[in-house]
Design a protein around this nucleic acid. Structure first.
Lengths: 147, 147
DNA sequence: AAATATTACTTTGAAAATGCAAGTAATAAT
DNA sequence: ATTATTACTTGCATTTTCAAAGTAATATTT
């Protein structure tokens, strides 16, 4: 978060913020896997450690990609949700999914197959809009009921 | 390049390969700034060090995103070029450019303005195809003439 | 032909980022 | 009242990054 940017290139600046092992993974977990609490992330397949999670959540908040609210009924739980700025990374996430499906299967044999990949490829823009709409709707209704 | 992948998620796998400060920067430098030699990268605005450059070029080659050829007339120069696999990251690069332009200007005040950004946003698919075509055409003709 | 410069590296060691394990404070459940 | 859960923090080890110096092959200059 200090000495933030290497140069004046917009692409490099994006990588200065998002280019590490965790920032985009956390955004993906929120957008696609509906994760919203500290516990959700800790228990995720990617197995992030608590210290890094704390650091990265603060960084995501610093750049305005997520917000952090108290749970309405459980005071010890914090809820992390994507902001519009965070949601606007959906195209990047989807492009990475498509690219990975087409170019990384030979390197990661256990990579899972998704039924959504065909729809992603053929109607990318539509898929992106659906994902974003879906996220916002779930936010507006029943998200934190599990806790 | 060892213990490569965290889990079976395609998006996380893409980040396992591309999620660092350099992999996508180098691909951008090749695609947009027509860099192709070791020296080109060393002298770039991002100021990569020689040891990291060596490591990252090897990694990019390992995943088949670039290839490495001898210069046809200068034997001490190696030429690094994007493969089809590498070129297929163009959508990711463009999405990052658009996102950065819209969301990071407040954090990096020196970020440069590009005339191409409007065209990127309004005709994304077309812009991507043009960039790729352009890259291939330059490769086929006059690239390494400067050396 | 000899000396110098260039290119693409490798090596070394220090600094920074990552990550594990243990601990803590506030709240909730039993 | 005791135990469990959640969201952290702290300390330390490991891994990654990276600057500086060195090297080997080739090219250029004198």
């Amino acid at each position: 978060m200090n000495q933030e940017f290497r140069c004046d290139c917009p692409i490099t600046s994006a990588i200065d913020v998002l280019g590490d092992k965790w920032m985009l993974v956390i955004i993906k977990q929120m957008l696609i896997e509906q994760m919203e609490t500290f516990k959700d992330f800790i228990e995720g397949d990617e197995a992030i450690s608590t210290s890094i999670l704390t650091t990265k959540l603060k960084c995501l908040e610093h750049y305005g990609l997520i917000d952090r609210k108290s749970h309405p009924t459980n005071k010890k739980t914090k809820l992390y949700h994507l902001t519009e700025k965070g949601l606007s990374l959906t195209p990047v996430i989807i492009d990475l999914a498509i690219w990975s499906d087409q170019n990384l299967r030979g390197f990661n044999p256990i990579m899972r197959q998704s039924d959504e990949l065909e729809s992603m490829k053929s109607n990318k823009e539509e898929f992106i809009e659906k994902l974003k709409k879906n996220y916002k709707e779930k936010l507006a209704t029943t998200r934190y009921i599990k806790s």
